[in-house]
């Protein structure tokens, strides 16, 4: 069953006003059966924050995607330390290139690695939040940052001994990684669910446009959704608001209410593996191919479901 990832980094209003670059960076790497996405929030107080975040996210995503099996099999806590060690080595090289000290490349780091067999691994250093949207509409926190006192102090990958939060699972899960810049909006669970739904249901380019329109916030805002595609579709089709779903699919709300469970079955199956017409006829509880295609037409028209060479697929 394939895993997927979608991400968007939006420059904050304060950065635009001050002519500063976006200090958030996101990088996705795919290696064999594994996909990893890393999000880094460069510390605004550091001179080369953007370069540091870019270097950290790139090396972390590449390393996790390539070494997923080894990292996953390490005892609890060791995968995070290993990733931090590799990232710091890369930062030291980058600092040399930029003729600056490593601390000027300080950033936070969140990484999510997902394997097609359903295993997943998350590593989190500093602030930001890794969450797991649930099918019942709630959002559970996988790891976040507890500010002991003030909000502008956090740990960075360049800090002396930052706290590393690590989470492993062999269940098919989907994660949402977001930097602290998204907090003004995504601390609202409704908006958090909406962004998650858009990440899964929209093409990546459209999702980025939506984020750029929504995140009119002071700090840079990055959201990445990664994990098992069928789990993501299942969650979205269960939890997305009927109105939102009806507008996205271009069908009346009444039709969404009638067809929601059918669409959920169909999309979840198509996200797992290509489905034949006979399987789709069964899943959509129709009797003919014509009626099946007619029922699934809204999904095909909005690009969520692809039908080619006799197979239905859902690809991201």
């Amino acid at each position: 069953m394939p895993c997927f990832s979608v991400s968007s980094a939006t420059k904050g209003q304060n950065h635009i006003r001050r002519g500063k670059p976006c200090d958030d960076a996101v990088f996705t790497a795919v290696s064999g059966e594994c996909r990893a996405v890393a999000v880094a929030d460069g510390a605004g107080s550091r001179t080369h924050a953007a370069q540091g975040a870019a270097a950290a996210s790139k090396i972390a995503a590449l390393f996790v995607s390539q070494e997923f099996d080894d990292l996953y099999s390490l005892p609890a806590g060791e995968a995070g330390s290993m990733v931090l060690y590799i990232v710091r080595k890369a930062l030291a090289d980058r600092a040399e290139e930029l003729c600056c000290s490593v601390r000027e490349l300080g950033s936070t780091l969140m990484v999510c690695g997902a394997h097609n067999d359903g295993r997943s691994l998350t590593i989190h250093i500093g602030d930001g939040c890794i969450e797991r949207p649930e099918g019942n509409g709630s959002v559970s926190v996988v790891s976040d940052y507890e500010h002991e006192e003030a909000e502008n102090i956090t740990e960075l990958i360049t800090s002396a001994s930052p706290k590393i939060k690590e989470h492993k699972s062999c269940r098919r899960l989907v994660y949402m990684l977001r930097t602290d810049g998204t907090e003004p909006l995504l601390s609202d669970p409704c908006l958090c669910r909406l962004i998650f739904s858009l990440a899964v249901l929209l093409p990546e380019a459209k999702f980025r446009e939506a984020c750029a329109e929504l995140f009119i916030v002071p700090d840079d805002s990055t959201v990445a959704v990664a994990g098992d595609l069928s789990a993501a579709v299942d969650t979205v089709m269960s939890a997305t608001d009927t109105t939102v779903l009806s507008r996205l699919l271009g069908i009346p709300e009444k039709t969404v209410r009638c067809r929601r469970s059918c669409y959920r079955r169909v999309l979840t199956a198509a996200a797992s593996s290509p489905c034949t017409m006979s399987k789709m006829i069964r899943l959509s509880r129709q009797h003919t191919a014509y009626r099946t295609i007619k029922k699934l037409r809204p999904l095909i028209d909005c690009g969520l479901l692809q039908y080619r060479n006799g197979f239905f697929r859902m690809e991201k």
């Binding site: 304060n14 550091r46 602030d127």
Partner: peptide
Amino acid sequence: NNMDTMDEETL
């Protein structure tokens, strides 16, 4: 103006 992410040392 600098309510960006930073660590204690920078603060």
